[in-house]
């Protein structure tokens, strides 16, 4: 028996059924059985917001609906595009009132993330979803106005009732719960790398070399971009700036050494999420690799893992191999419009 079977069994036991087997009635939403990929941690789903087919569907609609913005022009999906693994191909995203100051973040495997935003300032998906609506640049709307718009909408009241029951008030709480449910279903683990791990597909020699560079001290990526999520869900300064303009984690902690620390991004689907870094400064993976190879700044803010050596000294072939390996982390379902 493998470990990952345990959570599956438990989830099965708690959710009490396969997806889609019981017909939905307004007070009895259909439990959604989540598939946890082999080797992934046991996910924690808040007890007061279980996944249901109706809740997820409502969340999917709200996520794509500009009704959440002040002038009905911007949806969550405007800055989190499906074909970019729910990130944005633009360096900064366009909201109702100008551009964001950071690069949009991809949305997948967030079930396993303990904190949200580049600086980790939000502790749950439910809490996170409150902010873009109110952010004057992003959606510039007021939750009380959103509530009014949803309440008098021709279809949303019925969808809220199906997801949460007819006697619960439509509003911020249920809306962010539905969005969070939708986001929790964005699980990405259908990649060449995962099939290689399972022994059902081979790496090319170049991908294999890249895997080895990544997972040894030679390129030393694995200490922060940890399998299977390819993030440690921690905060690091990877030497982008000697004097970081954006304080990153230090805005939360005020720690002197936390300046310029940002949440380690997952490298899954990295092929689809250019541009790169919190400020989208790099357009290509070549630029990112060169940053780690020879371009990063050294100071007491730089993570000790990187400060320990001046350069990686990778040759052209090795850099290319690393990129080939990174592309084995692509899940094509996250590259579809």
């Amino acid at each position: 028996m493998k470990y990952w079977l345990l959570p599956l069994l438990l989830l099965g036991a708690c959710s009490g059924g396969d997806k889609g087997t019981t017909p939905a009635s307004p007070h009895n939403p259909t439990p959604y059985a989540l598939d946890v990929p082999a080797g992934f941690p046991i996910p924690e789903i808040p007890a007061d917001n279980p996944l249901t087919i109706e809740g997820i569907e409502l969340g999917r609609l709200l996520f794509a609906d500009p009704i959440l913005s002040v002038d009905s022009t911007v949806a969550c999906a405007s800055c989190h595009l499906r074909e970019s693994a729910f990130a944005d191909a633009r360096r900064f995203s366009k909201g109702v009132n100008g551009l964001t100051s950071r690069n949009s973040m991809p949305l997948f495997n967030l079930l396993w993330s303990p904190s949200f935003f580049w600086d980790g300032r939000s502790a749950s998906l439910e809490d996170q979803a409150i902010h873009p609506v109110q952010n004057p640049i992003e959606m510039g709307e007021d939750w009380s106005t959103v509530t009014a718009k949803l309440t008098r909408h021709p279809t949303y009241p019925r969808l809220f009732a199906q997801a949460f029951g007819a006697n619960k008030p439509i509003g911020q709480k249920l809306a962010v719960q539905a969005i969070a449910q939708f986001e929790r279903t964005l699980v990405s683990a259908d990649t060449k790398y995962d099939r290689w791990l399972a022994g059902t597909e081979e790496f090319t020699p170049e991908e294999e070399r890249g895997f080895l560079l990544f997972h040894t001290e030679q390129a030393d990526c694995f200490h922060c971009h940890v399998a299977p999520l390819f993030t440690d869900n921690q905060f690091h300064n990877n030497g982008l700036d000697l004097d970081p303009a954006d304080p990153g984690l230090a805005r939360q902690t005020e720690g002197r050494l936390d300046r310029g620390k940002f949440k380690t991004p997952s490298l899954r689907n990295i092929e689809y999420t250019a541009p790169y870094m919190h400020d989208g400064r790099f357009q290509t993976l070549q630029e990112v690799i060169e940053h780690y190879n020879s371009g990063f700044h050294r100071s007491n803010l730089t993570d000790p893992l990187m400060l320990i050596r001046p350069e990686l000294n990778l040759n052209l072939k090795e850099k290319q191999s690393l990129i080939s390996f990174l592309k084995t982390l692509s899940d094509p379902r996250f590259n579809r419009p």
Binding site: G39, H215, P228
Partner: peptide
């Protein structure tokens, strides 16, 4: 590799198979 439960704190201690 894989002997401990897949919990974030154990995963972050992984010593990769190539090593």
């Amino acid at each position: 590799t894989g002997a401990l439960p897949s919990l974030e704190h154990f995963n972050n201690m992984a010593w990769p198979s190539p090593m």
